Simulated assay, not measured.
Amino acid sequence: MSHRPAVHLALAVDDLGAARAFYGGVLGLAEGRSTDHWIDWDLRGHQLVTHLAVGGPAAEAMSAVDGHAVPIPHFGLLLTDGEFGEFADRLRAAGTAFLIEPYLRFPGEPGEQWTMFFRDPAGNALEFKAFRDESKVFAS
């Protein structure tokens, strides 16, 4: 059987209606299959599933990166430079409260990247970023 590599992510949410409005409306993800206790989302070909769970996501830790407190766990996507700016504008227009406002991290270093952090309505942390040079994603 031939298939392309893809990631499957599952998140706990406490309100599927709020998840549908956020992931489908604000983030613009296409909705896949769903039931009364979960929704599949197309995260650029990767499967993201929001599962209804009493209490929402588990507690998290923080990690210091470039002078910011980064929430752990978190997930997101790598975007292009142009997509990053458009996406940040879309989030601002939707009234998204950023944990870390969009900014350029590690300027002039091999890992130079635009990054931003925010939460979904259930409190799950998301990071979206764009490398100035995509060949440097894993550069040290």
Rank of each mutant, 00 (worst) to 15 (best):
M1I: 08
M1F: 09
H3N: 04
P5G: 14
A6P: 05
L9Q: 10
A10D: 15
A10I: 05
L11V: 15
L11R: 13
A12R: 12
V13C: 01
V13L: 01
D14N: 03
D14E: 00
D14K: 00
D15M: 02
A18N: 07
R20V: 07
A21K: 04
A21W: 00
F22D: 01
Y23S: 00
G24N: 14
L27F: 14
L27V: 09
G28L: 08
A30L: 02
E31K: 15
G32I: 11
T35A: 11
D36N: 06
W38D: 06
D40T: 09
D42I: 02
L43D: 03
R44N: 12
R44A: 05
L48C: 14
V49G: 04
T50I: 07
T50E: 00
L52A: 08
A53R: 11
G55C: 07
P57M: 12
A58K: 10
A59R: 13
A61P: 01
A61M: 07
A64C: 12
V65P: 00
D66L: 00
D66C: 01
D66T: 01
G67S: 12
H68T: 05
H68W: 06
A69E: 05
A69Y: 03
V70E: 02
P71F: 13
P71R: 12
P71S: 13
I72L: 06
I72T: 09
P73R: 10
H74Y: 05
F75M: 11
G76E: 06
D81I: 10
D81S: 04
G82V: 11
F84S: 06
G85S: 08
G85M: 03
E86C: 13
E86G: 09
F87T: 11
D89V: 00
R90P: 10
R92V: 10
A93K: 09
A93L: 03
G95Q: 03
L99Y: 10
E101M: 03
P102M: 12
L104A: 13
E109G: 12
P110E: 07
E112Y: 06
Q113S: 15
Q113W: 07
W114N: 15
T115N: 11
T115H: 06
M116Q: 12
M116K: 03
F118W: 15
R119D: 14
D120K: 12
P121C: 02
A122C: 04
G123R: 03
N124P: 02
A125I: 09
A125F: 08
L126G: 05
F128N: 09
F128I: 09
K129W: 05
F131V: 09
F131K: 02
D133V: 03
D133I: 01
K136S: 12
A139T: 11
S140H: 12
